[in-house]
Design a protein around this nucleic acid. Structure first.
Lengths: 258, 258
DNA sequence: ATTCGGGGCATGTATATATAAGTTGGCGAG
DNA sequence: CTCGCCAACTTATATATACATGCCCCGAAT
């Protein structure tokens, strides 16, 4: 009654995703400025030649991201474009840095296979003493050290790293190419003081504050693959989180304004 | 064909939310342990006497939170119970502390009405010099100071605070009672060194690291109401984020294991 | 001029149905 | 005994429909 000219059920396309991406694009490029009212659901149905289902799914996703608001009885309107990063961009320092104006760099300090210590074993859900692959790298932006990263991989995933130049490419891209897909991560933030080696590598005074992010990354099946302890020099990188009462939140890593 | 005995369209109930909460409860209390397979969609339909729509909505929400995984063709299964906190629990220190074993406390240092400085004005989207309500409080857990909080409210929201005992109740509960509903927040994390007054109030050495959370909280319409600069003593409180490639992420504030 | 209803429109929720596609397990051929 | 293929089951996606409820605006009454 409302659309048609489309046989019931075409191949596959994930229409709701198509619609959501299109609306997101209109918001970010200004065709739907902040405060503007979105087209009504019925209009979107006509425009995309779909039924209300996919349209509502797309709107629900936008609402969960905090990009649109409004509700029962009233047309939804744009409340702001929340900066969003894909999962891979959030996980991979290399990929993230490329999306900023800063020039990324990295220096591998150590790549080793060794027995898991207690905390690493707990994070990766393996027995203490099991072999893991550990890599320590200093990350740079415009030649300035901003982060030191101590990452432990399970042997299964980490063995791919020995035939790989850890100073150039992205580890995540390399792992993905080898069939290791990381889709879930858990990040914990706190502050620590820079100590001996870290202070030296990051070129900051001993005892000065660092932002620490500890991260456990898992496959879709929930199997932990990576545990990392990353320590950031303040003022260079911050982490930003958006959350709304309705549903979840999104996480973004940003270079602060200056 | 599958359920019924329920007239088409009862009042209002948000069945998908009921179903989601029930499943969440089963997972957290162990009736659905990690790794267990969920009932099939058809079974859930029978059990709750609903059609597939609400069931699928509930499962989609659980999947977005990273609690369940699995999909096309296979029954979904539990991959882990992600600790989740409601928005209010995440925003309100008082409410959050009550869900831990620690005994919360607070000491109001200052409550004032003053002209907005540049950074506050920018955060709250008001002109520089506009009157705002600022409150400085030290937050305690088991009598130990763990955080100092500098919060600025717009005058509209903040004027309710002067007839309120800021040492006892929750500001958020009080604001909600006065019709100010906060539903969206943006948090930014970094590390700073403890300086003069902060170090004194938190009873830590000057120059020691603090975890800083800066937060802008808005109403559903996207109007900023609160800007806060909270500084945490390390080791007492951490922030944890879960995110998955599919969909968003959730944010949690936790007391670390010790 | 201001306020109070009512109706139209838009969204929220739920049902029934249909097709595509992935998973799993069993059966038969080599 | 093993390998491969197929059938049954289950989920993902989409359509059409129906009704409940909340906004918003316009017109009438005060």
């Amino acid at each position: 009654m409302m659309t048609s000219s489309r046989s019931p059920l075409e191949p596959r396309a994930a229409l709701h995703r198509v619609i959501g991406d299109e609306l997101r694009a209109r918001i970010t490029d200004g065709r739907l400025p902040i405060g503007a009212a979105l087209p009504s659901e019925a209009e979107l149905c006509r425009e995309f030649s779909v039924s209300r289902g996919p349209v509502r799914q797309a709107l629900a996703a936008l609402r969960a991201e905090g990009i649109i608001a409004g509700g029962q009885g009233a047309v939804a309107h744009v409340v702001g474009s929340v900066p969003t990063q894909s999962m891979t961009s959030f996980l991979s320092f290399s990929e993230w840095a490329q999306s900023t104006q800063r020039r990324p760099g990295q220096r591998t300090v150590e790549l080793a296979k060794r027995a898991a210590t207690e905390d690493v074993a707990a994070a990766l859900s393996v027995p203490v003493g099991e072999l893991v692959v550990e890599i320590i790298r200093v990350r740079l932006l415009d030649e300035v050290p901003v982060m030191v990263e101590r990452t432990s991989f399970t042997l299964e995933a980490g063995r791919h790293l020995f035939d790989f130049d850890t100073d150039s490419g992205s580890i995540f891209a390399h792992l993905k190419g080898n069939g290791v897909e990381l889709v879930a991560a858990r990040h914990t933030f706190d502050a620590v003081a820079a100590e001996g080696i870290d202070a030296e590598m990051l070129d900051v005074p001993s005892g000065s504050p660092l932002l620490r992010e500890r991260r456990i990354t898992s496959t879709g099946a929930g199997v932990p693959v990576e545990y990392s302890d990353d320590r950031y020099v303040p003022g260079q990188v911050t982490f930003t989180i958006n959350n709304t009462a309705a549903s979840g939140s999104s996480v973004v890593r940003l270079v602060p304004d200056q």
